[in-house]
């Protein structure tokens, strides 16, 4: 046995010891699990229905989930930072209602869009003030605002659907290079956020805040400011998603996107985001969004009862949380 310490260059420890083998690093990534599940889901659903061998069918069925998926990407960052936001689906409804209502009242599309986006950001800011300003737990705050925003949407829109002008309707049928526009938006946002989270210092700091907020503050990382911005981004993304949904449906009702928060959280969890913060990737959520779309569409084509579908989603959520927990506690050692 050679004696390393007695040599003056003690860095030898750095060269001597190899890092973990690459295959292990890749295998224990939770996204790998997501990817395997995605492949499995494809195999199963295409054996049930030959539609699933048609890429156009898959793309167009994904437009039903694109809006939630886009918000889920932002939500992934919020969860990595150690917080949660359960209000985005309600935010989608309220901002879409305000958008449609403004359009109806003024017939001005730019103004309506401005109002919709502004409302979304304001709702995000309201969450942020409660969570960061008043130091309340985000899960409680956003359960509260989830109810509040949805309630306000109902007050504004009543039980009526608000119609939108024809030129605004049908974003999901617009194709660009043969791909539905919502899918393109989703892919572009994925690339942008993956870059932001993976390659910029702010992305890095989001992970650090989620891992140990006290240490982050000591290191001069402005944890509160970054979290505030994340809640604003949530509000903005929700408003955009709300208007995309409005365009797809052609009209707005207060129950737009109802129950969407479950799907968004599910996407983040299935993608391997750690519920206690500090870990997760945009790629994971991207894969999980497709996975969820394939599973949901598969269940639809198989004509399962809505209640059964919901049970499956709930089970998936629990399984994914347990699985990521296991994977992470294993690598922790």
């Amino acid at each position: 046995m050679t004696d390393q310490t007695s040599t003056p260059t003690a860095v030898s420890a750095l060269d001597a010891a190899p890092p973990r083998p690459r295959w292990q690093v890749i295998l224990i990534r939770p996204e790998t699990m997501t990817f395997v599940l995605l492949v499995l889901a494809f195999i199963v659903s295409s054996s049930i229905s030959p539609y699933f061998l048609d890429i156009n069918y898959i793309l167009s069925s994904f437009t039903l989930y694109a809006e939630f998926s886009i918000v889920a990407l932002v939500l992934t960052m919020v969860i990595i930072a150690g917080e949660i936001d359960l209000s985005p689906a309600a935010n989608m409804a309220l901002s879409a209602c305000l958008f449609a209502w403004t359009y109806q009242a003024t017939q001005s599309m730019p103004l309506a869009i401005l109002v919709g986006l502004g409302a979304g950001i304001a709702m995000g800011a309201f969450n942020a003030v409660l969570v960061i300003g008043m130091q309340l737990p985000s899960i409680i705050v956003t359960i509260g605002t989830l109810t509040l925003y949805r309630g306000l949407a109902q007050i504004i829109a009543g039980d009526q659907s608000i119609r939108l002008p024809d030129y605004f309707i049908g974003i999901n049928n617009d194709l660009w290079l043969g791909v539905p526009v919502p899918v393109i938006i989703f892919v572009v946002v994925t690339i942008a956020l993956a870059f932001f989270l993976g390659a910029t210092i702010w992305g890095r700091q989001i992970y650090q805040i989620g891992t140990n907020e006290v240490a982050a503050q000591h290191a001069g990382i402005r944890a509160r400011r970054i979290k505030f911005m994340l809640f604003l981004a949530m509000g903005f993304a929700s408003a955009v998603a709300g208007m995309m949904t409005a365009s797809r449906l052609g009209s707005v009702r207060y129950d737009l996107g109802l129950g969407g928060e479950l799907q968004m959280v599910l996407m983040a969890m299935l993608g391997g985001t750690y519920i206690f913060g500090g870990r997760g990737t945009i790629l994971g959520t991207f894969l999980a969004a497709w996975l969820l779309s394939v599973i949901s569409t598969g269940m639809l084509t198989a004509q399962w009862l809505p209640a059964t579908q919901l049970c499956v989603l709930g089970l998936l959520l629990i399984i994914s949380i347990v699985a990521t927990n296991l994977i992470y506690s294993r690598t922790q050692r």
């Binding site: 992970y207 891992t211 140990n212 006290v214 240490a215 000591h218």
Partner: peptide, 17 residues
């Protein structure tokens, strides 16, 4: 409590400030 990011890389811990 106020120093390390336990699960993050040594490199990232060293350059955090």
């Amino acid at each position: 409590v106020s120093g390390i990011f336990r699960t993050l890389s040594v490199e990232e811990n060293i350059t955090a400030a």
